[in-house]
Simulated assay, not measured.
Amino acid sequence: MSAKRTFGETLTAVAWSFVGLRRKRDFDRDVGAFNPFLVLAAALIGVALFVGLLLAAVRLATG
């Protein structure tokens, strides 16, 4: 059993997953180490940031 991951490590893993650059080795190492609630929280933060950036880009582009 691997050690549990911190929220910062979870945020980093989710961020790399959003970009699509998560290594298989890291995924295999972390599969059982993440707290599902922290992964969900990190994913919601990532989605909120992504939507916010899209809205800001649209506002900037449309004036």
Score class of each variant (00 low, 15 high):
I45F: 13
A33S: 15
L11T: 02
T10G: 08
A13R: 13
L49T: 06
I45D: 10
D26Y: 00
K4C: 08
R25S: 09
L44P: 00
P36A: 07
P36F: 08
T6D: 06
G46Y: 03
A33D: 06
A41M: 14
R23C: 00
V47C: 01
S2I: 03
F18E: 11
V39L: 15
L38V: 06
R22Q: 08
G20Q: 01
T12R: 15
L44T: 00
T12Y: 14
V39T: 13
L40S: 11
S2D: 09
E9R: 04
F7A: 09
K24D: 06
A13L: 15
A42C: 06
L21D: 03
V31Q: 00
A13I: 14
F7R: 10
L38A: 09
L44I: 04
F18C: 01
T6F: 01
K4Q: 14
R25Q: 12
R23T: 02
L40V: 08
G8N: 11
F37L: 15
A33P: 08
I45Y: 12
V47Q: 05
F37C: 00
D30H: 10
R29T: 07
N35S: 15
W16V: 07
F34T: 03
T10C: 15
G46A: 14
L21F: 01
G8S: 10
F34K: 05
A15S: 10
F37D: 11
T6G: 07
D28R: 10
A41K: 15
F27I: 02
N35V: 13
P36M: 03
N35G: 07
A43W: 08
K4H: 10
R25N: 04
K24I: 12
G20T: 10
A41D: 09
S17E: 05
G46W: 03
G32P: 11
R5G: 01
L11Q: 14
S2P: 15
V14M: 08
R29L: 12
A13H: 13
M1H: 15
A13D: 11
G8D: 13
A41H: 08
F18T: 01
T12A: 14
A15P: 00
L49E: 00
A41I: 03
